[in-house]
């Protein structure tokens, strides 16, 4: 595999995008085929495997009992982490998370946290002493671009799938379940890539390698924006941002039907 991106490759992808075409024959507003599988891993409270074209992301939800933060004594805790292991791509290496993995985890976490997706007050067991800590572990299995959208979809699917363990005398019994997690909203993220003057949704690997700038918009059920992230060195004009947000909100409604 070539490690350096040839200029002629970038020029060709740019030319195609500006004509409204893409390498894999999609339109600028089309996602690759999405498949969501739930309840795959028995040791996790909830799990999901999302494939977006050739990109594959597995997410597990793990819950343990712990202490709440002192400024939020009656709320459960959400922790999100992402791992880009060497299994997913020859460019990924094992070891402590690097900036791309940290960014991925933070953008996904922000979408779920700020949408108020989990009713964290219902995760409180004894105020100020004991609450549920929810771990969302994102494992990228196959990297073919657009990890943000695939991971957010996988996380929210895994949360919807999760069953809370029973609590007796301040101890969790993982063998027995006491209902689903209190999920009140389903945030959906849509990622747009800008190359030249063209803006396209769901960039695949080759587009992601050459894009000028990237914008991720996460929206709630009501169509409100709950998280945004702009990446890479290029720039969006104010008009482009507003346009892209409108496109993103519409697209998120379509994706939400898949959950």
């Amino acid at each position: 595999m070539l490690g350096v991106i040839a200029d002629i490759k970038k020029d060709y992808i740019k030319k195609l995008l500006e004509e409204g075409k893409r390498l894999d024959g999609r339109g600028l507003d089309d996602y690759r085929p999405i498949e969501i599988k739930k309840d795959l891993y028995a040791t996790a409270e909830g799990s999901a495997l999302v494939s977006l074209g050739s990109t594959q992301v597995a997410v597990g939800v793990k819950m343990i009992l712990g202490e709440p933060y002192s400024d939020m004594p009656n709320r459960g805790v959400l922790t999100t982490s992402a791992e880009l292991g060497p299994l997913a791509s020859p460019t990924f290496e094992s070891g402590p998370p690097r900036p791309p993995a940290i960014e991925l985890a933070r953008v996904v976490d922000r979408g779920i946290r700020e949408s108020g997706s989990i009713d964290t007050e219902k995760l409180c067991i004894v105020e100020g002493e004991q609450v549920w800590i929810v771990f969302l572990d994102i494992h990228v299995l196959d990297y073919d671009g657009n990890l943000f959208d695939a991971s957010t979809l996988a996380c929210i699917s895994a949360l919807l799938d999760a069953k809370m363990p029973k609590v007796e005398d301040g101890k969790a019994i993982y063998g027995e379940r006491s209902g689903s997690l209190p999920i009140v909203d389903t945030p959906i993220s849509t990622t747009y890539a800008k190359l030249g003057s063209a803006i396209a949704v769901d960039p695949h690997l080759e587009e992601e390698q050459v894009l000028d700038a990237r914008l991720t918009i996460t929206t709630t059920k009501k169509g409100e924006i709950c998280a945004m992230q702009k990446g890479e060195g290029g720039a969006f004009t104010a008009e482009e941002v507003l346009n892209t947000i409108d496109r993103g909100i519409e697209k998120a409604k379509e994706l939400r039907k898949l959950l």
Binding site: M1, L2, A6, I8, K9, D11, Y12
Partner: peptide
């Protein structure tokens, strides 16, 4: 030297 076109692997 290659000018124009596209590379696939």
């Amino acid at each position: 030297v290659l000018k124009g076109g596209f590379l696939i692997e």
